[in-house]
Amino acid sequence: MKQLTAKEVEILLLEGKPLNLIDVREVDEVETGKIPGAIHIPLGLLEFRMHELSKAKEYIMVCRSGARSARASQFLESHGFNVINMSGGMLAWEGETK
């Protein structure tokens, strides 16, 4: 599984790179703030909403600590998606949130 640190993701965003971020945390967790532009799909709904995603795009998966996003990454990879896990999750995120 490919991984990027929270800092690496932040640098890519600051450089203006167009990233496809998917936040798999629960609703109450996302209410405390998420990375601007991230799509919120709770882990439990990912199976039912993966039709909204494109296999032609690369997605960076985000959660609180990196564990749920790793599970989400493995799940999507098994269905042919190109994904990267953001290790450390939002606990390691120092960038902007909305």
Rank of each mutant, 00 (worst) to 15 (best):
M1C: 13
Q3S: 13
L4I: 11
L4G: 01
T5G: 05
V9D: 02
E10L: 15
L14A: 15
E15K: 15
E15D: 15
G16W: 02
P18I: 10
L19T: 11
I22E: 03
I22N: 08
V24L: 05
R25Q: 01
E26Y: 00
D28S: 00
E29A: 10
V30S: 06
E31S: 10
K34M: 11
K34C: 04
K34F: 08
I35M: 03
P36V: 09
G37H: 07
G37D: 05
G37F: 06
A38L: 03
A38F: 06
H40A: 10
I41F: 02
I41S: 02
P42W: 02
P42G: 06
L43W: 04
L43D: 01
G44V: 05
F48H: 10
R49P: 03
M50A: 01
M50Y: 06
H51R: 13
K55E: 10
K55R: 15
K55S: 08
S65G: 15
R68D: 06
S69T: 12
R71H: 14
R71L: 14
S73D: 03
F75V: 13
F75K: 15
F75A: 12
L76E: 06
S78V: 08
G80L: 14
F81E: 09
F81P: 12
N82L: 05
N82R: 11
V83E: 04
I84Y: 07
N85G: 04
N85C: 12
M86T: 13
S87C: 05
G88D: 04
L91M: 13
A92I: 12
E94G: 04
T97W: 09
T97Y: 08
